[in-house]
């Protein structure tokens, strides 16, 4: 059933051996327990309903993981879960959402060595891996702090020329599909995901195909961070296969594309017409750049609601 094997080419052999060495030392005389990388739907950790997988290999040809190769049915199930969770998540207080995002940062901090190791396993230098994990944690903290502020920045009381109290507030767009970038598989994912969920949306995301390990481990972080089930759903698999489903599913309200292919984006544009999905291209050249930290990213997946009420007796 294996579909394809992904090998890593550009990566220093020394970093890999260091990581492996660490693991070797720890296990000493015992056989270590390998982790099965699963996907994350509705707060649970299934494997793909299709039973398919692809094998990640290190540059030396050592199998690292048999990663779930998600099908459109997995995607469908994830959207169902996301839809079911969205309203409740949106109606949680802003304070509460902020606390939960901060809790994710705490959990990630606690497991930072694991994430560094995974990044290194997938080809990062240890310096780069450390920087990526630390920036990811800080980025979560950054967006956690926006939870009860973006509304104040972007909403308005409108001085209409009649006897009405009139105000415009932001509400989440709904269920958002996120196609995470291939590179910076952790930082890119978190930078794109945090503004989506801090704004009360639920999300179905497709992890980096070539570097999926952190996203699966991140699901474990989410699972222990008070994030309600279904708010974030994480799939692994091939972007080419799932792209059209992400962009054509009629119950997905918006798609955030963080990849770098014009052709893929064009496919999204085409499919989005069917139900007028909001489509956002978020492909910064550098995931460490300041443009990744902005409340305008939250605004991308928000709708403005204007409410009128008469003033009188």
């Amino acid at each position: 059933m294996t579909d394809k094997t992904i090998k890593f080419e550009k990566r220093s052999a020394s970093d890999e051996s260091k990581a492996i060495e660490g693991v070797e030392q720890a296990k000493s005389s015992r056989l270590n327990v390998l982790k099965t990388y699963k996907i994350y739907i509705d707060g649970k950790f299934p494997r793909s309903e299709s039973g398919r997988y692809y094998t990640l290999e290190s540059a030396k040809g050592k199998a690292i993981a048999n990663v779930s190769l998600c099908s459109r049915k997995d995607f469908r199930d994830a959207v169902t879960a996301a839809r079911a969770a969205q309203l409740k998540w949106a109606s949680a207080t802003a304070y509460n959402r902020g606390q939960i995002l901060y809790r994710i940062a705490e959990m990630l901090e606690a497991r930072r060595t694991q994430f560094i190791e995974e990044l290194v396993l997938q080809g990062s230098t240890s310096e780069a891996a450390q920087a990526e994990v630390e920036t990811s944690i800080d980025r979560l903290v950054y967006f956690a702090g926006w939870s009860d502020k973006y509304q104040q920045i972007f909403s308005s009381v409108n001085p209409v020329a009649s006897s009405h109290f009139n105000f415009s507030i932001l509400e989440p767009t709904g269920v958002v599909g996120l196609l995470a970038p291939e590179e910076n598989s952790l930082l890119g994912l978190i930078s794109a995901l945090a503004p989506i969920i801090v704004g009360g949306n639920s999300c179905v995301l497709l992890a980096s195909g070539s570097k999926p390990l952190c996203s699966v481990s991140f699901a474990e972080v989410l699972n222990s961070s008070d994030v309600p089930a279904g708010v974030v759903n994480i799939l692994t698999g091939y972007r080419k296969e799932l792209l059209s489903h992400f962009s054509s599913h009629m119950d997905v309200n918006a798609v955030v594309y963080a990849g770098d292919s014009d052709d893929e984006f064009k496919t999204i544009q085409q499919n989005a017409v069917s139900n007028l999905k909001r489509i956002i291209r978020f492909s910064p050249k550098n995931w460490y750049s300041p443009e990744c930290e902005s409340p305008y990213r939250i605004l991308d997946c928000q709708e403005t609601k204007t409410t009128w009420h008469p003033i009188g007796n």
């Binding site: 020329a161 009405h164 009139n166 139900n275 007028l276 609601k305 204007t306 409410t307």
Partner: peptide, 25 residues
């Protein structure tokens, strides 16, 4: 995108107007 409570069809240049879902963006 627009909710009128105890009134309807009121418009003003200061009041944002537009739809959710298939009513526009």
């Amino acid at each position: 995108g627009v909710l009128w409570a105890n009134t309807y069809n009121k418009f003003d240049p200061t009041a944002p107007f537009g739809g959710y879902k298939e009513s526009g963006m």
